[in-house]
Nucleic acid binder design. Structure first.
Lengths: 204, 204
DNA sequence: TTCTGTTTTAAACACTTGTTTAATTAAATT
DNA sequence: AATTTAATTAAACAAGTGTTTAAAACAGAA
C-alpha cells in the first residue's frame, strides 16, 4: 500500500465534490455552496482554485468525457476483433462505468440538450466513433446485406439498452417493482444479453 | 372552424410557456422571468395564477405524465392483441409523441433523478405498467421458455431504443454525422424496426 | 355613471448565489 | 528568525430570482 489517500489536496477535494454535486443535480441546480459543503472547505476556495463555477464545470466535464473515450477508443479501433467482440467490450466497460457513476448519462445528455455549448470537447469525441474501425465494419455488414439499415442504428440500440436501466432506476426502485439487489442482478445479466441481442439484429 | 385560438386565456398562455421553458431548461435553470417573457405577460401574473413556481411545475408535470399514460393504457391493456401488436402500438405512439416534444424524456428523467420528489404522480403510473395485460403476456412468454430473462428487460430495451436517438440527437447533428432530414428518416424507419428487433429478442 | 370585483402592472422586498476582498494563518524560502 | 509566498477564512458585494404589494386598468352590474 503506497497511497492510503488520507489527505488529498484541497484542489482535488473540490473536484471530487464538484463531480458529485454536478452530476447529481445538473449545472444550474448545483450551487457553489453545495460543492464547498460537499468538499468540506471554505466557499471562497472554489473560486480561488478554479476562477469560476463555469471553469470548474468545464474541467470536470473534459476529464470525465476524456477518460471515458480513452478507454473505449482502443476497443473500437482494434483491427483484430470482430464486430461482436467489440460490442461485447463496449457494453461490458460501459455498464461497469455506469454502475460506479449512475448519474453520468443523464448529466451528459442534460448538459448537451441545454445547448449552451458548455462543453465543446464532446463533439470531437462524437466524430471518433464515426471514424472508428467498428464503424467501418458495420458499413461492411450493410453492403454485405447482413443489415438493411443505417449502422448508426446499432450504436443507438446499444447505447439505449445500456443506459435505459440507469435512467429508469429511480422509478423502478420507488415503484417497488424490483429491489436494489434484483436490479443489480438484471444489470449484470444484461452485460451478456445485450451483445446477444445486438448479434440477432445483425443476423450474426 | 370553431376556435381559431387567437386569444387564449392568460392562465393557458403561462402554462404553455412554462411547458416550453421547463422542458427546455429543467426546473432550476428555468426562471420565472423566462416563463413570463415566453408567455409575453407580466412577471407577477405567474404567481397570481399559480401561487408559486413549484406549484406551476407540479401542474405541468402532472398533466404531461397523465396525458402520456392515458394514451398508452388502452394499448397495453387490450386483451385482444398479441405482445407484438402491443409493442408496435407503443413504439409508434411514443415516437410520434417524442417527435413533437423532443425534450420530454430528458425532462422527465432529469426531474426523476433529482430525487426531490417534485412529482409523486409518476410512481403510480409506473405501477400501471406492471399490472398491465402486456406484462402478464410477457410473464407467460417467460414461463413458456420463449424468453430466458426477466420481462422488464423487454420494456427497458423498447424504451431505450425509442428514446436514445432523441437524447443523442444534439450530438449527432452537431457532429455532422447526419443531417436533420436523414435523422427524421431514420426515426421513421425505426418505428418499424424496433418492434421487429423486439420480436427477435422474444423468439417470435 | 358609480360601484364592485377581477386582472394587470411597475416596483419593491427578501433571499439566494457567484464572486471578490481584506485580513489571518500556515508553509516555504532566505 | 525574518521574510516572502501560498492557503484559508469570514464578511461583504452585486446581480439574480421567487414572491409580494399597492396602485392602476379593466369589465360587468346596479
Amino acid at each position: 500500500m503506497t497511497e492510503t489517500r488520507i489527505d488529498i489536496s484541497t484542489e482535488e477535494k473540490i473536484k471530487e465534490a464538484a463531480r458529485i454535486v454536478f452530476t447529481r443535480k445538473g449545472y444550474a441546480a448545483a450551487k457553489v455552496r453545495d460543492i464547498a459543503a460537499e468538499a468540506d472547505i471554505n466557499l471562497a476556495l472554489v473560486n480561488y482554485y478554479f476562477r469560476s463555477k463555469e471553469k470548474l464545470f468545464e474541467i470536470i466535464m473534459t476529464e470525465t468525457i476524456q477518460g471515458l473515450f480513452e478507454k473505449i477508443q482502443p476497443i473500437i479501433n482494434n483491427e483484430l476483433t470482430t464486430v461482436s467482440e467489440k460490442l461485447e467490450g463496449i457494453v461490458d466497460h460501459y455498464i461497469d462505468l455506469l454502475l460506479e457513476n449512475p448519474y453520468l448519462p443523464l448529466f451528459v445528455v442534460n448538459e448537451l440538450m441545454s445547448g449552451s455549448d458548455r462543453f465543446p470537447k464532446m463533439t470531437n469525441n462524437g466524430n471518433m466513433f464515426l471514424h472508428s474501425h467498428l464503424f467501418k465494419q458495420l458499413w461492411e455488414l450493410r453492403s454485405g446485406k447482413k443489415i438493411e439499415f443505417h449502422p448508426v442504428n446499432i450504436m443507438m440500440n446499444m447505447l439505449g439498452m445500456i443506459i435505459m436501466p440507469f435512467l429508469a432506476r429511480p422509478l423502478i426502485l420507488r415503484s417497488g417493482a424490483l429491489k436494489d439487489e434484483e436490479f443489480r442482478g438484471i444489470i449484470e445479466q444484461r452485460k451478456k444479453l445485450i451483445p446477444l441481442w445486438l448479434n440477432m439484429m445483425m443476423n450474426l
